[in-house]
């Protein structure tokens, strides 16, 4: 008995593509989305998912505690505007772990020439990577405070809602995401080795945090109270906190006060501009 084939595979040869070809913008968007997914380990191996998801979970823990305290003790303990400063070590570890993933493999495995042989420019590539990391950091920092705010709305508290503080914190989160993404990509893109990139970013954070704290302590103890607040701005998290409190009127996280708001804003802009320029120059060089 012979079995009649129910399906036959035909070799129809090479077919040309005559569908739509999207522009540069859409290609950049696709790269950005792919990078953003990759930051959280989506579309990557299980091993690559552990770190970002674990850190994202840790970021939610103060939210859980805060909602618990609000529900049981009717007390507001965790101001939205100070969440990031409080959790700065976790955010810094996330940045150090994920920024090198975005840029190092393309340099190390020399994938960059393939991108540049397509209708993408160096600037498109850099914009996509910076945008992906910015959005990732924004989600990491904004989701916990948003959940906390929803919790505050749902729990009947004796005091009015901290809406102003929440919105100010969201504004500050945007600025912080942009600054950290620019710094992270700038530091990570200088080495094609991912491990080294992680070390450089975390070392940069620890160095700025330590130097900032040390200078502040020395200056304050020697009675130079007028200069001491400037030392705080060396830490990127306090720099953004200073800008946030001057632009959106939130409480300073240090309780010590910062130098005049305009100065903080200018420093923030200068640091972002410097980092982005550094990345662009780095990639112009890598491309040629």
């Amino acid at each position: 008995m012979t079995i009649e084939p129910t399906a036959v595979i035909h070799d129809i040869g090479y077919r040309h593509y005559d569908g739509v070809r999207l522009g540069r913008g859409r290609a950049t968007l696709a790269l950005g989305v792919q990078s953003l997914r990759g930051v959280f380990g989506l579309g990557r191996t299980i091993r690559a998912k552990i770190m970002p998801l674990l850190l994202a979970a840790i970021m939610l823990m103060p939210t859980v505690v805060s909602i618990g305290v609000m529900a049981l003790a009717k007390q507001f303990v965790m101001p939205y505007s100070q969440y990031a400063v409080f959790m700065q070590a976790v955010i810094a570890v996330f940045l150090a772990a994920q920024a090198p993933y975005l840029v190092a493999p393309d340099l190390r495995f020399r994938v960059l020439p393939l991108y540049l042989s397509r209708p993408l420019t160096v600037t498109d590539y850099v914009v996509a990577k910076l945008a992906a990391l910015t959005v990732a950091l924004f989600c990491l920092m904004a989701i916990p405070i948003t959940i906390e705010f929803v919790g505050e709305m749902l729990i009947d508290m004796p005091m009015p809602l901290h809406t102003g503080d929440f919105l100010g914190a969201l504004g500050g989160t945007v600025l912080r995401a942009v600054l950290l993404a620019a710094l992270g990509v700038a530091l990570a893109s200088f080495t094609p080795r991912r491990g080294l990139g992680v070390a450089v970013v975390i070392a940069f954070y620890m160095f700025t945090a330590a130097v900032s704290g040390l200078f502040y302590a020395v200056l304050a103890s020697t009675g130079r109270d007028d200069v001491a607040p400037w030392a705080l701005l060396l830490n990127p998290f306090f720099l953004v906190d200073a800008v946030q409190s001057s632009l959106f009127g939130t409480e300073p996280a240090t309780g010590e006060g910062y130098p005049p708001g305009v100065a903080s804003c200018l420093i923030l802009l200068a640091v972002i501009a410097l980092a982005v320029t550094g990345v662009l120059l780095r990639y112009r060089k890598a491309a040629s």
Partner: peptide
Amino acid sequence: MAQMSGLP
């Protein structure tokens, strides 16, 4: 890479 060339 196909997406980077502009294919949906």
